[in-house]
Design a protein around this nucleic acid. Structure first.
Lengths: 203, 203
DNA sequence: GTGACGATGTATCGGCGCGATACATCGGCC
DNA sequence: GGCCGATGTATCGCGCCGATACATCGTCAC
């Protein structure tokens, strides 16, 4: 899962660990916390040993005029290999087990721009199925075991159910968009003027 | 965290592993998936060795007329000890690190009925702070790095931001309720299965 | 000028919790 | 009578996290 995210990011440009973490935080910020170094560095090494990525460009591609890059500061820049690109394509379509709170969906979604409509639809519908299952589970608890639970627990279930219902609606909108051709949602809502740094969006 | 949940459940009635897992699924269903056996059984043993829980009631409390309980089917029933109850009280107030996607908040919330208002407020406000931080992070990404991200990534961020804003609102309602005295929200459950929006829940 | 401090950067360690798997018993269904 | 699914306990490998350590760089105060 993390491997997929790393391959996706390195496909755009070579990076070192610190950058990868920040980029990951910015791109997947909505679905999972920033990745831990305790995970990132061992994973990078594993992927390097497996051949998906490689350290620092073998050819002299670093511009000599960039003082920041030629600094003595220790940093290991990784780039994706041909094998890695293959692996990325395979994984993107594979879409593993992915339970409800699996961040895997978020990673896939983040790299949707690199996939085709059929793949997007399959992943979106898979996610919808999983969220619907969870939603049904919560509804069952609320309707069948409600008398056995205290008010706080019930409130928690209701909030969880609400979140599931919203996500299903969101997914169905995305699915409808994919089917009808328009690729992403060209956000018809709230065109936020350029000088506005306080862009609050509500729907 | 799991330990807290187990202690809370055993405080109501002794149980064996299988029951614990099902009960956990029903009570924390909204915030985390059902606990894995690969986690549950080692944890139970660890807690037994630590003295928080003990196997099967020491006194002969099993009715000899109950064939199901006297069956040869292997099952280990655990009960909470006095030490365990102490531990539970400590942990409930402690409220560990708890990052945004830490299920710890859900566990605490589930056992709110066993706490006092001050503890509830502290935990609710802690959670609110964490969600607000995440919300600000997402807003920053959306306003500062929006041009650098593709439409799908932006859509993901928007959905995440929306979820954060909703949770903050939910938390603030709960906090207001706690401050004003009424403990839980005593709303009339309202079993509306299809397309409900739960719009008007003002006091 | 120099010293403190925070951001940048790489790395390791212990441990929690997951998914897969194995194995055994029970009840019910055809 | 035999199959199957629910009930039950248990183990194993591993992904990922949080804490921690350590080193360099830029910058601002004093």
């Amino acid at each position: 899962m993390l491997e997929l995210a790393i391959l996706g990011l390195l496909q755009e440009t070579p990076m070192h660990g610190y950058e990868l973490r920040k980029e990951l935080g910015a791109k997947l910020g909505a679905f999972r916390a920033a990745i831990s170094y305790g995970t990132l560095y061992p994973t990078l090494r594993r992927m390097r040993d497996a051949g998906w990525i490689a350290e620092t460009p073998p050819a002299a591609s670093a511009g000599p005029l960039d003082s920041a890059l030629t600094s003595k500061r220790s940093r290991v820049v990784y780039r994706i290999t041909a094998e890695g690109k293959e692996r990325f394509a395979d994984r993107l379509c594979a879409a593993g087990p992915e339970t409800y709170d699996d961040p895997g969906f978020g990673v896939h979604f983040t790299f949707f721009a690199r996939t085709d409509t059929a793949t997007r639809l399959r992943i979106l519908e898979g996610r919808r199925r999983r969220v619907e299952e969870r939603r049904e589970g919560l509804r069952n608890v609320l309707s069948r075991a409600a008398s056995r639970l205290d008010a706080y627990t019930l409130e928690l279930q209701r909030h969880g159910l609400d979140a599931c219902e919203r996500e299903v609606r969101w997914l169905e909108e995305l699915i409808a968009n994919e089917r009808s051709g328009r690729p992403p949602s060209q956000q018809p809502t709230d065109p936020t003027p350029p000088g506005d740094h306080r862009g609050g969006r509500h729907q």
